[in-house]
Design a protein around this nucleic acid. Sequence first.
DNA 1: CTCGCACGATACCGATCGGTATCGTGCGGG
DNA 2: CCCGCACGATACCGATCGGTATCGTGCGAG
Lengths: 201, 201
Amino acid sequence: MASTASRPGRVAKLPPRERILDAAEELFQSEGILRVGVQAIAERAETTKAAIYRHFETKDALVAEWLRIVAADYQAAFDRVGTEHPGRPREQILGLARFIADGLPTLSHRGCPFINSLAELPDRSHPARQVIEQHKARQTRRLVALCAEAGLDDPEQVAAEITFVLEGAQVSKQNGSIDRVGERMMTIVESIVDRRRAPGR
Amino acid sequence: MASTASRPGRVAKLPPRERILDAAEELFQSEGILRVGVQAIAERAETTKAAIYRHFETKDALVAEWLRIVAADYQAAFDRVGTEHPGRPREQILGLARFIADGLPTLSHRGCPFINSLAELPDRSHPARQVIEQHKARQTRRLVALCAEAGLDDPEQVAAEITFVLEGAQVSKQNGSIDRVGERMMTIVESIVDRRRAPGR
DNA sequence: CTCGCACGATACCGATCGGTATCGTGCGGG
DNA sequence: CCCGCACGATACCGATCGGTATCGTGCGAG
């Protein structure tokens, strides 16, 4: 037993790169990108700055990699609702909304990583910006396709409306100005998706 | 001529405190709070760090004061649409939406100051956080009152929906995933405000 | 006229930032 | 068996951070 596992001191310790990404995830999400130093990440990952710079060229590259993972998780959730409700675009849209609504309590007082990162990284040349913009663009494309498939007329407009509601709900959750955000958000998305349908076929 | 004006070198120079707040406004909005140092603010305000700390206890206090001004501007706009359309809550809501839609191109690639500041200031004890939360809470209260006055049923829910759309539109404008954001936003708000009305009265 | 004080300039403080260099050590693959 | 290399630890780098202290100067109010 414990043959291949490199003698974990107490619990199985992941390889340094994973630990670094996990630590970065937690710290970036809870305290923000700019307020978290590389040293702090190293300590939480139970490693050192040197090790971090062995795996990532710069801090910016680490930030970009973190967001790439978050984006991949979102896309995976999108895929999952697709396979769970094949051929049922309405349920897929609601599933996506549900996924975000369920995440609201977890994000708690800190909001959506993409929205926050955009605020923290004003310069468009930052590597993480490209990750965010590509993710958002892809998300929009998929949502438009779903709206079209659902027979909603003006799919771009409906997709925009849904996007506004999802993003706005996350922001409102963060600043605490509205109660029962997830519940309200789901109600709105349901009403949008059930509202209008194109007459033809 | 030029009797009371303290001999302006070229153009009328505002008093230091105003120049500092103007400089902070521009820099915070375009580059973010954390990325802008006090020294940079002093240079753009054509003064020095010492002068800044003569007028503001800390940088955090300056940030809070800046947001207080921005919030006051928003409230003033809210008041203005109220006086422009007295007794016409529907037009007041649309006027508020129009105010935000018109501001979208100005905010350009940087988004709403409140949303961005929330992302940059995670700790709830920060003085600026209270300014933001009070502003948002007041904004929500006024919007709920307007929705009720407009005869819309479930005013809290409708106000929440409008809030989500307004906030989400600003975020989407920032990340560029959706085109014609202002136009789409106005269309949505109009449809919300014209949708349901309470049967009574 | 003169005094006080806000002002602008400058230098400085300790802390922390992102990033690099240099060690010794211990595990895994040839 | 043994060698290479990733690892962890530590010290260090220049730059910049928020904030303070100390000047001289010049304008406005008494």
